[in-house]
Amino acid sequence: TPAPPPGSGEHPIQFNYSLWFSKRTPGKQTTSYDQTLRFVGSFASVEQFWSYYTHLSRPSELSGHSDYHIFKEGIRPMWEDDANKAGGKWIIRLKKGIASRCWENLVLAMLGEQFMVGGEVCGAVVSIRYQEDILSLWNRTANDHVTTSRIRDTLKRILNLPPNTIMEYKCHTDSLK
């Protein structure tokens, strides 16, 4: 389902994005990641984004093992997608209680084109887990150090994280091994 064109008076965004949700059911895993992934919708304007966002539970209110994914339209939130194959992600582990605020700041920076890395950004994920929550920002080219450094610096600036927060970069090919 492609995003509808921005309506009259709406504010278009640089790239259209799609919102996805996934939840792992407790117990034995009989379904693949692909099967747990639910497409929520695509948007092409700031107002369309908020129309989805305001109807969703905040990340901190989700139970169990849940993820929101916001990726550029046409990129599936998985390593195997062509846009992600040579890419990687910055991973930020958060103490419980701050995920909703940090996720919103991350998403707004991405939709507002604050990263200044051209078309390098693929998408963002918030992962709700039992002990901690995890933010990740995916980009196309893992070995482009200028881009990954710029993304890291922007993440630090926009997230306003506690000083002891650890940021880690992972290539998707390492994750596959």
């Binding site: 309506g7 008076g9 709406e10 504010h11 278009p12 965004i13 640089q14 700031v46 107002e47 908020w50 129309s51 305001t54 700041n105 707004l108 920076a109 939709l111 507002g112 084109e113 604050q114 926009i158």
Partner: peptide, 21 residues
């Protein structure tokens, strides 16, 4: 072409727009 850039404050303001359903 031109890049469409928005800051956080502006995006939050749009949240209250009557266009946001």
């Amino acid at each position: 072409g031109t890049r469409i850039v928005y800051d956080r404050a502006f995006l939050l303001q749009c949240r209250n727009s009557p266009l946001t359903k």
